[in-house]
Design a protein around this nucleic acid. Sequence first.
DNA 1: CGAGATTCATGTGAAGTATACCTTTAGGCTTAA
DNA 2: AAGCCTAAAGGTATACTTCACATGAATCTCGTA
Length: 408
Amino acid sequence: MGVWGVLMEKVLKFRENIFSNYKNASSVFIDKKVLSSNYIPNRLLHRDQEITQLRDILLPILKGYKPSNIFIYGNVGTGKTISTKFVLNQLGEASNIKTIYMNCKLKKVSDTEYRLLAQILKELGVWVPETGLPTSVLYKKFFEVVEGQNIILVLDEIDALFNHSGNEFLYNISRTETANGIILIGITNDITFKNHLDSRVCSSLSEEEIIFKPYDARQLYDILNERVQLGLNPSSIAPEIVAKCAAAAAQEHGDARKAIDLLRIAAEITDRLCLDKITEQHFELAHEKMNIDRVAEAVKSQPKHTQALLYSIIKLRAKINTGSQNWVDSRVLTGEVYEYYKGVCAKNTLKSLTQRRVSDLITELNSIGIVSTSVVSNGRYGRSREIVLLIENNILERTEKFLNEIFG
DNA sequence: CGAGATTCATGTGAAGTATACCTTTAGGCTTAA
DNA sequence: AAGCCTAAAGGTATACTTCACATGAATCTCGTA
C-alpha cells in the first residue's frame, strides 16, 4: 500500500466532522458554501451570451405574453443548470412569476410520470400520496392549481424521464390547453434525446433551443479563480495550482462543476491534514477520493438485488482473471452472471429474480456507468451481452470489500 | 467450395401478477339532545 | 339524529414475472463444380 495508501486511508476516513472545523482555528476556507457545486454566484462568468439568450426568450412573460418553450443542450458542467437558475432567480426578483425546478433523475422521487407530477404538486403546496391515486387525478389537481397562472417549469436531466415512459408527461403537458400558462424549460446533455420524442411533443417543446458550449481552460481558470477569491484564504493556494486544475478540467470536456468539486475536496483534505497550503498532491488525492466516493455512493444506493448482481460480476471477473493473465479486460456474459447470481441469492436467502429482470438490471448498471455492456453474437453459441466493469482497480477493491460484507 | 438453412443463448417487447397503498362507501357504534 | 370509526370494495403505480418472438453470426447441409 505504501505511503500513498496510508495517506489515502486518512483522507477517506475524513467525514465532515462537526468538531474538526472548530478545533483548528485556521482553515483554508473562508466561506465554504461558495465552493459547493450548487452555489449560485452573483455573476456568472463566460455565460453572458447564453444568459442573454435565455432572458430574451423569457422577456415576453413580463408583458403578459407566453414565451416559447425552451430546450437547453450542453455537456455536463457547462453551466446549463446554474445559468437557468440564475436567470430564474433574477426573474423572480423582478416579478412574482412562479418557477419550479425539477431534477428528473432522482431515483424514487421524480423518475416516473406519477412521481414527477406528485413532486411538482408538492412544490406547489399540494400534498398527494406517493401511490394509489390515478395519474389523471394528479393532472386534474395540477391544472386546478395552475389555472390562469404563468408558471415556468424547469425539467433538468429530462432525458431520464424518457426511460420510464415519462414521455406521457411531456405529451400531456404540452398538449393541454388548460396548461396554457406553463412554460417548459427542458435541460439535457443527451443530444440524441430529441430523436426519441414524439414529434408533436418535440416541436412544441423545442420552440427555442439554447446550446451551451464547454468552457475552455482560460474560462475555467476565471471561474475557479473567482471561487477561490470568495471562498478560500488568499494565502492557501497558488495561482499556478488553480491554473493546473483548470487545465486538467478543460481536458476533460470543460466540466466546471467537477473542477469546483475537485477544488473543494482538495481544500478539505488540506484542512484535514492540518496544513495551510493546498498543493498539487492534495489535488491528486482529491481526484482519487472523488472517484471513490462516486462509485461508493452509486453502489450503496442500489437495491439489494442490483448489489448482489454487481457482486456476482466482480467475483466472476476475478475468477476469470486468475485463470488467464489479465491481459484482456475481462468480459463476463449474462448467462454466467445469472448462474452465479442465483448462487449468491441462495446463500443469502434472497429470492432470486428472473433472468428477464436481471437483464434489465444490467441495463440500469450500464446507464449509471458502473458497467459497460454490448450485445455480441457468438454465432452458433448464441447471443449474449458482454459486461465490462468500469470501476478502476483501486476503487474496485473497496467496492468488493463493501459487497463482501453483505454477501460474503 | 459456397450459398442458404440451422442453431444457440439470450435480447426484448407485451401482457399479466403481486404488493402496497389510496379513496369512497356503507354499516355499526357512540354520543348528545 | 348526527358524528365518528372501521372494514370492505374498487381502483392505481410500480416492481417483477411469464410468455413469446426476434437476433445474428458460427456452424451445418447439401447441391454443384
